[in-house]
Design a protein around this nucleic acid. Structure first.
Length: 591
DNA sequence: GTGAAGGGCCAC
DNA sequence: AAACGTGGCCCTTCAC
């Protein structure tokens, strides 16, 4: 493909270029950087393309003459990038948005992300990859040469090949978007695409903001865990060795407590009827009869803490900011949920000793807000079940109210067991729980479990009907959707009963879990707009929870904005039951 | 040594 | 086959 491009190194040419470009509806957009993290490297090129004409702006030349964030020379570029129009089309716009925000000091306005769009269209098909090369080949049928991607973007003089590569990537965005828009329309994904695109900037900014971890506190916590780990490990070694102690003249032989095979052998030697797998839920029932099993589970707990939540997280603290800048994948799961890694700050143990290490720096506060039982409220909304809705409208403790309805007693007469049964079913229905699993988790007999589940679904007939319909629908249409229209496709073999039942559970769960993700993403967009220009910063999200950090003086204001954004987002999708958000202002993540 | 697979467990 | 959904990370084991 022959493309026209122009390398821009001076203010006057840039001003003229921006003057022309700002009248376009859409622009292909890309950047070239010397590193992957904006805190480490420099932003070398910004490319903007109409498809026919591509401007490649060499910021190295501008940086030599002044600060990129304030330089008057760059004002036309900053304005163009910040404006909602033209829409900037990028592949993984989060990446470019972070560099633009950090190095040019502007929030990217008006985004179309070909990566997110491709993921929405693929609708959970694991076979599809979403690199720019793959996406281009899928939608345009052309191959992209990415060989210059890792070339030296620090060189004083860029090669013609580098500049051409940079220009071509931006130019490709124009035809690529056209094809993708056709597909989004055909699949009725335009609304959810907008939802996702609006979320890019909030997430880019959150990653730049980072989440503060008090390293000293974390180390203290680690020391405590290490001590108990050593103690528990020794006790477990001794208990496991009891079966073979006589066999050794040198006391007991140490085994690797982390080795499944060695531990299983040792348990067998002790006469423990070891189940097929030694996972916690299988072993738990044996703990009462075999103290060694209880000790093993205790060991696993501390070992997990020490490995997954040990020293390694400290290596992720950025030396420049002193904070954790985790990597969030916006469409991390087919349901639309985020995933998080390096480090995964969505799986920090709930235990206070861990959570309290994540705290507000001096003079700042954390504002922690989470949706109260949002998935159950979504289920109530979808099913239109009047009893289920009433349980929420009453405003009383939901599980108690539900138990009163299911067991037909007054709320004040609900026993602890009854509430617990109702609570476990309330959570379980969202995942498509069966009586077998319910029996296992409650310790009830199969028939008692079935009996309680019958009572439950007799009380909530509308809920039962919705769940059955979701199963039926996924079988006939092989597709499930959330309230925003997000889609998940299911492929399974007609003969494979296991795959069928999995798809049916997915058909029930995906719309619920996915709508929760829709709501969170919508809230992030509203929040981002509300807190612009204040001291409030988004610092973490955990599926139904949003954490903001703000100056202590602004905490009340930020809490108010956060609550309003979350409620408004929820109410866009939920109207039959109230949306409840719990907000607190704290010094630490815990409490 | 390195990498994939399997088992296990943390979060919501 | 956890017949309860979505992720990521750690460890061991095993093949190359």
């Amino acid at each position: 493909m022959e493309i026209y491009f122009q390398l821009i190194t001076d203010a006057e040419t840039l001003r003229k270029a921006c003057e022309d470009l700002k009248n376009e509806d859409v622009l292909g957009f890309d950047t070239e950087t010397t590193e992957l993290s904006p805190y480490d490297g420099t932003l070398r090129l910004v490319q903007l393309s109409t498809g026919k004409d591509t401007k490649v702006i060499d910021l190295k030349q501008f940086a030599a003459r002044g600060d990129l964030r304030t330089s008057k020379e760059l004002a036309p570029l900053r304005d163009l990038l910040a404006a909602p129009k033209p829409i900037k089309i990028a592949h993984n716009a989060k990446f470019d948005a972070k560099w633009i925000s950090h190095h040019l000091g502007v929030q990217l306005g008006g985004t179309f992300d070909t990566l997110l769009a491709s993921q929405l269209i693929a609708a959970g098909d694991d076979g599809r990859r979403h690199s720019l090369g793959e996406v281009t080949s899928h939608f345009l049928g052309t191959e992209l040469d990415k060989s210059e991607q890792v070339s030296d973007w620090n060189a004083p003089e860029l090669s013609q090949s580098q500049i051409e590569y940079a220009a071509r990537d931006a130019a490709t965005m124009i035809p690529l978007r056209e094809k993708i828009v056709e597909r989004l329309k055909a699949d009725e994904l335009v609304k959810v695409a907008k939802l996702e695109f609006d979320c890019v900037m909030p997430i880019a900014q959150m990653e730049l903001n980072g989440f503060y971890l008090d390293a000293a506190r974390w180390r203290e916590q680690l020391e405590r865990v290490k001590v108990s780990q050593a103690k528990v490990a020794l006790e477990l070694q001794q208990m496991l060795a009891a079966g073979v102690a006589q066999a050794s003249l040198f006391g007991f032989t140490e085994i690797n407590l982390d080795s499944q095979t060695q531990v299983t052998d040792a348990l067998k030697n002790l006469g423990v009827p070891v189940p097929e797998t030694t996972r916690g839920w299988q072993l738990q029932p044996l703990a009462a009869d075999y103290p060694v099993v209880g000790k093993l589970l205790e060991y696993r707990g501390v070992a997990k803490s020490l490995s997954s939540f040990g020293e390694t997280i400290l290596d992720f603290i950025n030396p420049v900011t002193g904070r954790l800048h985790a990597d969030f994948r916006q469409i991390g799961a087919p349901t639309g949920r985020f995933s998080c890694s390096k480090p995964n700050i969505q799986q920090i143990p709930h235990e206070e000793n861990y959570r309290r290490c994540f705290r507000a720096p001096e003079g700042r506060k954390l504002i922690i807000a989470d949706y109260s039982q949002v998935e159950l409220r979504i289920l109530a909304e979808f099913s239109k079940d009047q009893n289920f809705i009433n349980a929420f409208v009453s405003g009383e403790d939901f599980h108690t109210t539900a138990a009163a309805q299911v067991f037909n007693v007054k709320p004040e007469a609900v026993t602890a067991d009854q509430r617990s049964f109702a609570k476990r079913l309330n959570f379980g229905v969202v995942y498509g729980i069966g009586s077998q699993r319910f029996a296992l988790m409650t310790g009830l007999s199969q028939t008692s479990a079935e009996d309680i589940m019958r009572r439950y679904f007799a009380t909530y007939r509308g809920l039962d009907a919705w769940l059955r319909d979701a199963s039926r629908k996924v079988m006939s249409e092989r597709v499930a959707r959330t309230a925003s229209g997000r889609m998940s496709r299911f492929r399974f073999d007609e003969e494979d009963r296991k795959a069928i039942s999995l798809a049916q559970r997915n058909g029930k769960n995906m719309p619920i879990q996915g709508t929760s993700a829709d709501i969170l993403k919508r809230a992030l967009h509203l929040l981002h707009e509300k807190i612009a220009g204040t001291s409030a910063r988004l610092v973490n999200i955990v599926h139904d929870e949003i954490i903001v950090e703000a100056d202590a003086d602004d905490a009340e204001m930020a809490a108010d904005k956060l609550e309003k954004a979350m409620c408004a987002a929820g109410e866009e999708y939920i109207s039959r039951v109230p949306v409840k958000v719990d907000v607190k202002i704290a010094d630490e993540w815990a409490k």
